[in-house]
Write a protein that binds this DNA or RNA. Structure first.
Lengths: 198, 198
DNA sequence: AGTTAACTTGAGGCATCTTTCAACTTGAGG
DNA sequence: CCTCAAGTTGAAAGATGCCTCAAGTTAACT
């Protein structure tokens, strides 16, 4: 790749990173190109679809989440680790509206490195007795989707409101309060299908 | 109003009710007019803005929710009443994607009849000792926003999934599990402002 | 039956965003 | 310095949805 092409690609990524973070995933592509000081045609050259651009912008997040997961597993207390992990992911969401949108269309059911780690976090917390035994990884989607909705509504007005939402949600995941659940957990395939609808 | 105008209005409401329910609040107005067998101009005659149409379509919901609230208050057990109320509202959301969208842009902070009733439901459940004392009416927005997000993602694939989400959330609202919350509740004005952003 | 105000119509203008592509420019190897 | 493949450009076409208004139609009253 020619060096000017590399530079333009980098500028586009930088502009997209900024605009996604501030305005969510639906920012007009023209605006991204303009901010990058590049024509819309160049944007299409480098990233044939919006998804390609989104993927490139948030590529590092996969590793970030995996790191969060590993750090959570390294914590002494299983429940604390579980809480730290979810809090960390939500902090990523709160810090970047684009990633928040992405999280609302993603679930902890992917096949990547994070998946296995998350299972471990969950399993360890359940074995410790603090996390209720009847929740599954698929239920974490409820947590993230819910907090994503709160972040989207409140980020400008009450920046920290989501922490309260998350805290309430976490209390619902503790064994101490557990009451029988009215519906079975979602199958992985169902969760995946649900996301395809967004 | 001329009788044909009345009829057209009715047809428009009926079409809108159906299309909102199936496709959410963002259905094109042209499609609504077409479904009603009426021109787009007539739609604009009767409902100058989209909001006017939405308001007309869902006008009855205010009373429905108030009824739900009254029935909840009539229940013997305060906690059961609280649960029945929230479940009822979520059922309305699940049955109508339009109302689900509306709920995501609405909060139990309005000045209408329902407001006082909801306060009573909450207060009674807290006095009974089952509902944790540190939650406020504003926190109910988290519940409804969260469930709305789950409904939107899963309604086609796993129709009842939201009940599980709600059940987990409700367990987080019980006194038995209550842990200190990390952020103060939202002020009414903050909640209102948050909704203006949607 | 005539009159008229109320009502309806739908093409067209506007706005926004996406996507393509033929013409032009430029980096880099020889 | 020459060449040309790689890269850039931005106008233009396309898609979608909102909204208006001049012209035509009709209910309803006398």
């Amino acid at each position: 790749m020619r060096k000017d092409a590399v530079q333009n690609r980098e500028r586009l990524l930088q502009a997209a990173r900024q605009l996604f973070a501030d305005g969510g995933l639906d920012v007009p592509l023209e605006e991204i190109a303009r901010t990058a000081g590049v024509s819309i045609g160049t944007l299409y050259n480098r990233f044939p679809t919006r998804d390609a651009l989104v993927e490139a912008v948030f590529a590092d997040r996969v590793a970030t989440v995996a790191d969060l997961a590993e750090r959570a597993l390294a914590m002494d207390d299983a429940w604390d680790g579980f809480v730290a992990f979810l809090t960390g992911v939500c902090e990523l969401q709160a810090a970047d509206l684009g990633y928040n949108d992405l999280a609302a269309r993603t679930a902890p059911v992917d096949g990547d490195r994070g998946y296995g780690l998350m299972l471990k976090i969950l399993d360890r917390a359940q074995r410790s007795g603090e996390l209720r035994p009847d929740v599954t990884l698929a239920d974490m989607a409820f947590v993230l989707w819910g907090v994503a909705a709160t972040i989207r509504a409140t980020h400008e007005v009450v920046p920290g409101a989501w922490r309260r939402h998350l805290a309430l949600t976490l209390d619902g995941l503790r064994t101490a309060t557990a009451h029988p659940l009215p519906a079975p957990p979602m199958f992985t395939e169902q969760t995946r299908a649900a996301l395809r609808k967004c």
